[in-house]
Simulated assay, not measured.
Amino acid sequence: MKRLFDLLIVFLAAVFLLVPIVFVALLVRITSVGPALYWSKRVGRGNRIFTMPKFRSMRVGTPAVATHLLDNPEEYLTQIGSFLRKSSLDELPQLWSILKGDMSFVGPRPALFNQQDLIDLRTEAGVHVLLPGLTGWAQINGRDELPIGQKVAFDVEYLNRRSLTFDIYIIYTTAARVIRRSGVAH
């Protein structure tokens, strides 16, 4: 049922977001050197590594670490990088990962391949059995501001409460937070 829901939303989103996706891709290419997409190694279901696309908001050559681990993240942002992140437009290419089945609309946000502390905590808590999501319970309860332990606690809560109704609530709340641009540090 969840996979059908994901596919339905992807196709509906693709119809409405095709023009903005093309526009953002062009903007990224025009305003910075390098490709429009950044393919990030992420940890998926069962701790399997997959590549997840995002619109590139950081300069080419930025270290592949979580943004909060950079000494001065702002110095790595492209001209429109901050806007892409605050508006969550950088996340639009992840529709591809949902279509492929590497991700779902709702689930724990996929960890970077080198975030071993997060990967270990999720594995220990049993969260690694879930498909990662474009958004999730932890996302709407703090996004970039949550410490790893708290993020995993929200992921466990999602694991225990997951249902179509809960997913719809998370998607609705995500949309409201994106519109208000709340919870984004960079």
Rank of each mutant, 00 (worst) to 15 (best):
V15Q: 05
V43M: 13
G133V: 07
R45V: 02
V19E: 02
D120Q: 06
R180E: 00
L37M: 12
R180D: 00
E75H: 13
F5H: 10
D71Q: 13
S88P: 00
L146T: 01
L112I: 10
I140T: 01
R85Q: 05
N160G: 09
D6F: 13
Q115P: 04
W39G: 00
L26A: 15
E91F: 15
I98F: 11
F5G: 02
V10S: 06
S82C: 04
E91M: 09
D120N: 10
R42L: 10
L70W: 09
E74V: 06
R29P: 01
A125V: 02
K54H: 09
F23T: 06
D90F: 06
L27R: 13
M58L: 15
W96S: 00
D155I: 12
F113I: 05
S40C: 09
A25W: 08
T135W: 08
L118F: 04
A64T: 06
P63H: 09
L130I: 02
I49R: 06
Y158L: 07
G126H: 14
K54F: 05
F55K: 10
W39Y: 09
K86V: 08
S32R: 14
F11T: 02
T165Q: 13
K41T: 01
L17M: 11
E74Q: 13
K151A: 07
Y172V: 14
S88K: 15
M58D: 02
K2A: 04
V60W: 03
R161M: 12
E74P: 00
L70H: 10
V19F: 15
V106Y: 07
N114T: 02
Y76R: 10
D144L: 12
R161Q: 14
E75L: 10
L12C: 11
G136T: 03
L4C: 13
T173C: 10
E145V: 00
I140V: 15
L69W: 07
M58A: 05
M1S: 13
R180G: 00
P93Q: 03
A175N: 00
Q79A: 08
G107Y: 14
R143A: 05
T173S: 14
S88L: 06
R143K: 11
L159H: 05
S57D: 03
D6H: 08
K54D: 01
R29W: 06
D167G: 08
T135Y: 08
G133E: 03
L84R: 09
K41Q: 12
L159D: 01
L7Y: 14
P110I: 08
F16G: 12
G46A: 11
K151Y: 13
A185N: 13
L4Q: 12
E124D: 08
F55S: 03
I49T: 14
R3V: 04
D120M: 04
P110V: 05
I170M: 12
E75F: 05
L70P: 04
V15G: 10
M1R: 15
L89S: 02
V178T: 05
L159P: 01
L121K: 15
D167R: 12
M58Q: 08
V10Q: 03
M103Y: 07
F113A: 14
S88I: 09
F83V: 08
V22L: 15
R162Q: 12
A25S: 14
L99K: 04
N47I: 03
I30S: 04
L18M: 11
